[in-house]
Design a protein around this nucleic acid. Structure first.
Lengths: 107, 107
DNA sequence: TCATTAAATCAACATATATTGATATTATAA
DNA sequence: TTATAATATCAATATATGTTGATTTAATGA
């Protein structure tokens, strides 16, 4: 029950649904790129990434000061069905702005 | 997005997960029987039933003063996967107390 | 019509969660 | 080391949601 409710609670927020959709579309992405692309302030984004991570939807890999997030793989049936369902929603996805690669983050 | 979030929000509560599991196990059931079986006060149960109904998980059929709730059928993929996932949770299910049939409700 | 019963809704309150700006942590490089 | 940049966490506040007891609504039968 606890694990299920944690997954469901993580899905129960428009911001997090958008983040999942974003990562599913563009693949691994660092926080500052998401800040830029999704136009979210850092603390807000960080909070939601933590919730999604602890609910088992995403994973992090640290590379220096950067944290790269991506959809966890493999996902169990319920989580992957959830992601699939989110894909069907046809959310308007902002374009990916990869400033991290230019070494000009300074967000 | 709105419909998806409504479904997810409906799942995001231990009480409602239990109600779904209960209805899935025992089939159509009236409110007073659920009150008794699940040991919930009427207003609480009624609120959760409404949320589940509006999220598309269950349906009601009125028979006189009684309201019979059951899992809606057919369910779309996400909702039926959710119900399936809930079944796997192995929730301890209280037994069904069918007092409504004895005509001695007076709850 | 009036009383009774099942169910729905309301009002008050308590708890949980989201947002923001400020601060802390961690890694890198000068 | 010290400064800087990326990310995480904290504190304060606002909003959403759950619980309860009281009230309302709707259907039935005397």
């Amino acid at each position: 029950m606890e694990v299920f409710l944690k997954s469901v609670a993580a899905l129960n927020d428009e911001t997090r649904v958008l983040i999942l959709r974003f990562l599913d579309e563009y693949g691994e992405c660092c926080v500052c790129d998401m800040q830029n692309s999704l136009n979210m302030i850092q603390s807000r984004l960080s909070r939601h990434l933590k919730i999604l991570k602890e609910a088992g939807f995403i994973r992090v890999e640290r590379k220096g000061t950067w944290a790269y997030y991506s959809i966890r793989s493999p996902l169990d049936k319920f989580r992957s069905e959830s992601i699939k369902e989110i894909t069907y929603l046809e959310i308007e996805l902002p374009e990916l702005k990869k400033i991290s690669e230019t070494r000009e983050c300074k967000i």
